[in-house]
Amino acid sequence: MSRDAASRPARERLLDAAGELFYESGIAATGVDAVLARARVSPATLYAHFSGKDGLVAANLERRFRQWRDVWDEVLDERTDPVDRLLSVFDAVVRYRAVEGNRRGCAFLAAAVELPPGHPGRQWLAADSRLLTERLHDLAEAAGAGDPTGIADGLLALYDGALARLARQAATPGLDTGDPLHRARRMAADWLAGRVPPGRPSG
């Protein structure tokens, strides 16, 4: 850990360390001791900020959710064309991965497999699902699509497939079939043609 990183507040260091380790090794495989060692804090400091590992997991997912939402908001602010605004979900993931330096698939999809029912982190998995579903529905409706629910479902299928493919590539050395996000975006653009009226204002 650099001198600058070590000077950051303990809570931020814990979240940084947890985010890195959970993403690299998985939530279940990461022990609290590994997080404490990377963050350079004591167990008492951890429990002063979080209820334990489950609280740390939930706070990490909350932070990732808010960061991801902010990036998508930023990308949407740059788009005016209705189809581009629908496709912004793919552009936002590309930008988010560039900022975060992600090399694997979606942390939310991974956490969904690992977290048991009732885990406090699941509220942020649900928040991510609502954001994707509701925002894509609203963007499709604003674009004048006849079936906004169907448009949202179709885009989500391509989105989830691209993220799952990224995870598979990361887990399989030598498996490189191109960028799944760019490919999914092209497929989505082709699929939207004829389903979204051209030239309609996005407001």
Rank of each mutant, 00 (worst) to 15 (best):
Ala92Phe: 10
Gly55Pro: 04
Arg130Ala: 14
Ala184Gln: 05
Tyr159Ile: 00
Ala37Ser: 13
Val99His: 06
Ala98Asn: 08
Thr177Lys: 08
Phe50Trp: 10
Cys106Leu: 03
Met1Trp: 13
Val71Ile: 12
Ala126Lys: 09
Phe22Trp: 09
Arg66Asp: 15
Asp70Trp: 04
Asp128Phe: 13
Val57Lys: 04
Arg186Pro: 00
Gly19Pro: 03
Gly19His: 01
Val89Glu: 02
Arg63Asn: 05
Val75Glu: 15
Gly203Leu: 13
Arg40Gln: 15
Glu62His: 09
Glu114Ser: 11
Lys53Thr: 12
Ala98Ser: 12
Asp84His: 01
Ala110Val: 07
Ala10Met: 09
Ser129Phe: 09
Leu192Ile: 01
Val35Tyr: 00
Ala107Thr: 12
His137Tyr: 15
Thr45Cys: 07
Val41Asn: 06
Trp72Arg: 05
Leu36Asn: 04
His49Ile: 01
Trp191Arg: 02
Ala98Gly: 05
Phe50Pro: 09
Phe108Gly: 07
Lys53Phe: 07
Asp190Arg: 14
Leu155Arg: 01
Phe50Gln: 05
Tyr47Gln: 07
Ala127Tyr: 10
Asp4Ser: 15
Gly55His: 07
Val196Asn: 07
Leu132Lys: 13
Tyr159Gln: 07
Thr172Phe: 10
Gly150Thr: 11
Arg8Tyr: 10
Leu14Lys: 06
Gly55Ala: 07
Pro82Cys: 11
Thr80Pro: 01
Arg66Ala: 14
Val32Gln: 14
Asp4Gln: 14
Tyr47Asn: 10
Ala10Asp: 10
Trp124Glu: 02
Thr172Arg: 12
Ala58Val: 03
Gln169Ser: 12
Ser51Met: 08
Leu158Tyr: 03
Asp91Leu: 09
Gly101Glu: 09
Asp190His: 13
Ser2Tyr: 10
Ala39Tyr: 01
Arg183Gly: 08
Pro173Val: 01
Gln169Met: 14
Arg66His: 15
Arg66Ser: 12
Trp191Ile: 00
Ala126Ser: 14
Met1Asp: 12
Tyr23Asp: 03
Ala92Trp: 10
Gly146Leu: 07
Pro201His: 07
Tyr159Met: 04
Asp73Phe: 03
Arg168Asn: 01
Pro180Gln: 04
Ala140Leu: 05
Trp72Tyr: 12
Leu87Asn: 02
Tyr159Cys: 05
Gly118Tyr: 02
Arg63Asp: 10
Glu62Gln: 15
Arg95Ile: 02
Ser202Val: 06
Leu163Glu: 15
Leu36Ser: 04
Ser25Thr: 01
Arg63Cys: 07
Leu125Glu: 05
Arg85Leu: 07
His119Glu: 06
Ala6Met: 12
Arg186Tyr: 03
Phe50Glu: 05
Arg97Trp: 10
